[in-house]
Amino acid sequence: MNLCEVIKPGLFTTVQDLGRYGYQSYGVPVSGAMDNYAFIVANLLVGNKPNDACLEATLLGPELEFLNEAQLAITGAVLTPTINKIKAKCWMTFQVRKGDVLSFGNFKSGLRAYLAVRGGIEAPVVLGSRSTYARGGFGGFQGRPLRAGDVIKAYKPETFLRSGLSMPHHLIPIYGIKSTIEVVLGPQSDYFTETGLGTFFSSMYSVTSESDRMGYRLDGPMVEQKRSFDMVSDAVPVGAVQVPANGKPIVVMQDGQTTGGYPKVGIVITPDVSRLGQVRPNHKIKFSEISASEARVKLLKHIQGISQIKDKLEESKL
């Protein structure tokens, strides 16, 4: 069914799900939501499956006119959404009718907001996912960010939720201007000097404006390498912290390249990749070291935490 027409596209609004797995060996990046946590919660708030497609808005959200009745939820960055110019609540289910206009105002905190619709955004499955990979020109809505005049479709839900859900306050993340990001050393941390590693873990790095869904280019003290290596390219996972010859780290994000030749000082832990997805240009980050085994325990807890959210939302109905 036709969900809405795009009046204004916003800065960079794309269709995403949890990503495209199984094609990195063909050079295809994972793509998918930059903040998995906010994305999954948005879906759960409208009773969807965690992987149903949503819209990801960046800093300046879109203006959308609804062409049908729908149940929605907005999570993630605080981009001040309004319905017909009346403030809309985030992190809870709400209803729109035909003709209603959703728009976004000031960006208060965070970078990316998620708009989920009951039933899920309709988009063809390309290589196993509905996520947009804009550089490759495929997935999502015609392989590109939304433009004015686009008509977005959604799968027609069999039923509407009878009562709305809301996220308990203490579980709503707060997006600050300084973040500590945990990193597991390796696989090429031995390419760096002790001083270099010391600098990396003790300095503040600012996210530059040359940062996007592919990667975050950081500015700050140079991370010293033992000598200038011509490393033989190997695989690059999401969250990899690459350091080119200029010593300025680049964190690889969801649309990043699958292989590369820069030494990787470490890998950002999965829960913190989501947090990084909310960090804006000019905001500061500090890296802290975590052992691989601690990181694994943390990830399992994180996964468990997400699986419990659904129950907590159900409780919110009472």
């Binding site: 060996s25 033989v232 390219s233 695989a235 996972p237 699958t258 292989t259 996964i303």
Partner: peptide
């Protein structure tokens, strides 16, 4: 095992930590 990425000299194996331990 979720997926593998073969390169010149190494294989990166992505796995589901709920299914299998390191």
């Amino acid at each position: 095992v979720v997926e593998c990425v073969p390169t010149y000299r190494s294989l990166l194996v992505y796995y589901d930590p709920v299914e299998v331990g390191y």
